[in-house]
Design a protein around this nucleic acid. Structure first.
Length: 205
DNA sequence: AGCAAGATTAGC
DNA sequence: CTAATCTTGCTA
């Protein structure tokens, strides 16, 4: 049986490092089809989702980016090396997961906005509450964090190692075509085309 | 020290 | 369309 951490891990971490050398908007687009995997302690099984929607947040000329005012207590993880997770609380209620994309100290990241549930649906349903349709389990940045049990405890973790990982698309998986558009939920720099959705997916927002 | 705004969501 | 909910960071 294949373990997440052992043999597959090296290749996946290398693929992630390679991906993260590209400019952030390109990373945001290329991340479509990658998988978020959370391994739980008590072997309750994996929770897995395919990324179907992302947004890029840049370090220059992007007033909507949390890094726009430089490092602060909240956004410090955004300035870590590429591959780290930046998780923060919005509206005092919901968490959002980002992948740090720029070299240490720069401050760019990709917000994961929606996932297609792949495995661990029962765990997701338990976390999301009764009566939530499968389509809505991870459809939205706050929802996917709830489904995966992500909180600020995960802020600053590296996604190439440990219990929360970013894995490449499965070999042979179809190429995901991206639909590009403006980012949502922001008021500043709202016109930049930095939102990427998997074409045809019904799991996007 | 006080306050406005926020990369959202659920419910009416 | 609006409330919920609370932390951050700016202004005084």
């Amino acid at each position: 049986m294949t373990r997440i951490g052992e043999q597959g891990g090296d290749a996946a971490a290398r693929a992630l490092a390679r991906l993260l050398r590209a400019p952030t908007p390109e990373v945001a687009r290329a991340l479509l089809g990658w998988r978020i995997v959370r391994k739980h302690e008590r072997r309750r099984g994996l929770v897995v989702g395919r990324i179907v929607e992302t947004e890029a947040y840049l370090a220059v000329d992007d007033a909507a980016s949390h890094s726009a005012m430089g490092p602060t207590e909240r956004n410090r993880a955004m300035f870590l090396a590429p591959g780290h997770a930046y998780v923060y609380l919005v509206y005092g209620l919901h968490h959002c997961l980002n992948v740090v994309t720029a070299p240490e100290g720069v401050g760019e990241a990709v917000l994961v906005r929606a996932l297609e549930p792949v495995a661990g649906l029962a765990t997701m349903r338990a976390r999301r509450g009764p009566g939530v349709a499968d389509r809505d389990l991870c459809r939205g940045p706050g929802r996917l964090c709830q489904a995966f049990g992500l909180t600020r405890d995960h802020d600053g973790l590296h996604l190439g190692r440990g219990g929360l990982r970013l894995l490449p698309p499965e070999p042979g998986a179809p190429i995901v075509e991206a639909v590009v558009g403006p980012r949502v939920g922001i008021t500043k720099a709202a016109d930049l085309p930095l939102r990427f959705r998997a074409a045809g997916s019904r799991f996007t927002t």
